[in-house]
Design a protein around this nucleic acid. Structure first.
Lengths: 206, 206
DNA sequence: TCATATTAATTGATCAGTCAGTTAAATTAT
DNA sequence: ATAATTTAACTGACTGATCAATTAATATGA
């Protein structure tokens, strides 16, 4: 086989390799994924990888770049800033949860996480979008405090930190530990769980 | 050099290798840690590892077995079951946090986590002690509900899940993502943060 | 002396990365 | 149109490095 036709609609080789690499990386981790694995998954031969990428590291960078979920979090800016806390928080947390636990995003997290664990100074992918979510939550909480819809005594920053950490803890227990006691919930139920426990402390007493 | 004297107080070779392996595994991950690394760290030659362990996998198992923090969590059974919620929860969560973030325990978690991420069916180490903590929290919450010290409407199980998930999320953000906005807190402050946000929702309205 | 502990040298497997050579598509010349 | 030429895409065998694991030789303490 040689040069393939420039058929439209077909993904190009580069993308094809990147997508195959994403799957293999997610399955076996970057260190354990061999070029042979990736080539087999992509339906090509190992040598071709080096036609499109300088080395394995560059392939990883390309995978991260292409599949970065950052743009997904750009959409997080919620429409209803003036919705009451229960509605707003339910919608926002659910949206964030759907994004993070999507196949696309979590495959990537799996890959980066092993690197992250051991001294790699890969741009801390999750470190990029967590602040984004924190920021949205925090701004909303502050806004609602001025409106009197949330208790003034609590710190908006701290409440946002705890809300997000709780969600993140749940995701980790599901995706990393496969904790059955948490896997049994749907996304909606998870958000309810968190809000049922945390919201009452945030709302004005009444 | 050959056989070393049986001096008391000195750790024996087996332990010495296990401890060196723990450090190297934590630093580089199991897959990337070479026997040469481990041997250098232990001050021996690579071949000797195979005098004490069948293979690298067996060494990992030994590391896990020896450094398993399970016994630490056995001590978690708290003394003051009748302490009021703020005190009890503060003390218990702080204790759990101290254990998990100890050098010894988290090195091990780092090591197992990379394996866990990619299809290894290593006995899910963290899956062993999380239920333990959940259980303690849940039993306490229920007890205090019967005493009227906690709201009856909330679910003890769900509250325990959220409390633990919040703590776990914070630990992950600190240890995996090195999130500065969370690293700046001391253990005491982290527990305060969580309780300040979550407790008010659990206590009877007053 | 003799079982035990340790080393140094070695083996075979595997892997990332290279490269000379092949093929089909694209381009140009006729 | 179509043959000739060029070029981009691709292959697969190879290389050197590295690694886990083995083993023969050897040193040491009992």
């Amino acid at each position: 086989m040689a040069r393939r036709p420039k058929t439209e609609g077909t993904e190009d080789r580069r993308e094809q390799i990147i997508n195959a690499a994403l799957r293999v990386f997610a399955r076996k981790g970057f260190a354990r994924a061999t070029n042979k694995d990736i080539a087999r998954e992509a339906g090509i031969t190992p040598g071709l990888i080096y036609y499109y990428f300088a080395d394995k590291e560059a392939l990883l960078q390309a995978v991260i770049e292409i599949h970065s979920p950052l743009h997904l979090f750009e959409q997080l800016e919620p429409a209803q800033w003036d919705a009451p806390p229960p509605e707003f928080l339910r919608a926002t947390l659910l949206q964030a949860l759907d994004i993070i636990e999507s196949e696309q995003v979590f495959s990537l997290i799996r890959t980066v996480l092993s690197e992250l664990l051991h001294g790699a100074e890969t741009p801390l992918l999750p470190g990029l979008f967590l602040p984004r979510v924190i920021d949205v939550l925090q701004r909303y909480l502050r806004l609602q405090q001025t409106k009197g819809a949330l208790r003034a005594e609590i710190s908006a920053e701290e409440a946002a930190q705890v809300l997000l950490s709780a969600m993140m803890g749940l995701v980790m227990r599901r995706q990393l530990l496969r904790d059955a006691s948490v896997l049994r919930y749907s996304h909606e139920e998870l958000v309810s769980l968190v809000l049922k426990t945390i919201l009452p402390g945030l709302l004005p007493t009444g």
